[in-house]
């Protein structure tokens, strides 16, 4: 019955089937709340009559999602903003820190990739700084910068810089000598060689580094916003946890995934645009 479908159509069908089955299992696994029967006075006084908090069923989450997404930008005070505003804050912080990191990492990566001396001189610092969890910088950032917003951006900056720096250096160092020789026999200066030969040759590797970085930045922003608070999707998750609104927690977890996927696919698109076959 599926013989005349393409591979993509069959895969899509299977995905939908898995989603439906998964949601049904989830819905069925939530135990029905016991109806409050006859309670002793003691039980009533200790809150036994209230429904026990549990994981909400998917139908509740979907209702919540519909409610939130139909009005994403409302703003009703510091602790009650629409999901669109919260995600907007997170994306703004991620992109600010990320592009500042790109401005540092890509030129520095070029330098390290082109010069053996620079590579050897920078390498010990990179190797020590790279494995540090970005959140470990948070106390120092808060103390030095004295601004929670800027500290979150700094944490994004510091975690995005490494994959971009290392991939740029690797891509630039790996440019085929033949292509560099083409530039040399055409008497291109250092800048024109960098922009017309080395940059396009290393672009796929550089974009791969940028793609890894944006993924890490999006992972880190949630944790950073849980710490600094105020606004953002990470703060939103934590705030809803404090409100014991599990429906909102699950909904925002899904939104984090969707936004992360969109950011990644934007870079996937860029990657395909600069790819070349040898």
């Amino acid at each position: 019955m599926f013989d005349n479908l393409t591979v993509n159509q069959r895969a899509a069908l299977l995905s939908v089937a898995m989603l439906v089955v998964g949601l049904l299992i989830w819905e069925a696994a939530i135990p029905a709340q016991k109806a409050a029967g006859e309670l002793t006075e003691y039980e009533r006084l200790t809150g036994g009559g209230a429904p026990k908090a549990g994981v909400p069923p998917p139908s509740d989450v979907l209702t919540k999602a519909w409610e939130q997404l139909s009005n994403p930008f409302y703003d009703a005070g510091p602790n009650d903003k629409g999901i669109g505003i919260q995600i907007g804050y997170s994306i703004y912080r991620v992109l600010t820190g990320y592009f500042m990191a790109a401005l540092v990492a890509i030129p520095l990566g070029f330098l390290i990739g082109m010069s053996q001396v620079a590579y050897k001189a920078f390498n010990p610092f990179i190797q020590v700084l790279r494995p540090i969890s970005p959140l470990a910088w948070m106390p120092l950032a808060l103390f030095v910068i004295q601004d929670s917003e800027a500290s979150a951006i700094f944490v994004i900056f510091i975690c995005s810089i490494w994959p971009m720096l290392i991939n740029t250096a690797f891509g630039v160092a790996g440019v085929r000598q033949d292509w560099v020789n083409v530039a040399r026999t055409h008497e291109l200066g250092a800048f024109r060689t960098a922009f017309t030969v080395i940059l396009p040759a290393a672009a796929p590797t550089i974009i791969t580094g940028m793609r890894i970085s944006i993924g890490i930045a999006w992972l880190v922003i949630v944790a950073a916003e849980m710490l600094v608070g105020g606004t953002g999707i990470g703060y939103y998750v934590w705030n809803e946890w404090n409100n014991l609104d599990l429906t909102s927690v699950i909904f925002s977890i899904l939104m984090i995934g969707v936004v992360g996927m969109l950011l990644d696919s934007a870079f996937g698109f860029l990657q395909r645009a600069v790819a070349y076959a040898e």
């Binding site: 033949d178 292509w179 020789n181 083409v182 030969v197 396009p200 040759a201 070349y276 076959a277």
Partner: peptide
Amino acid sequence: NYSLLPWL
């Protein structure tokens, strides 16, 4: 090996 720039 021709040494053409493969992205052009």
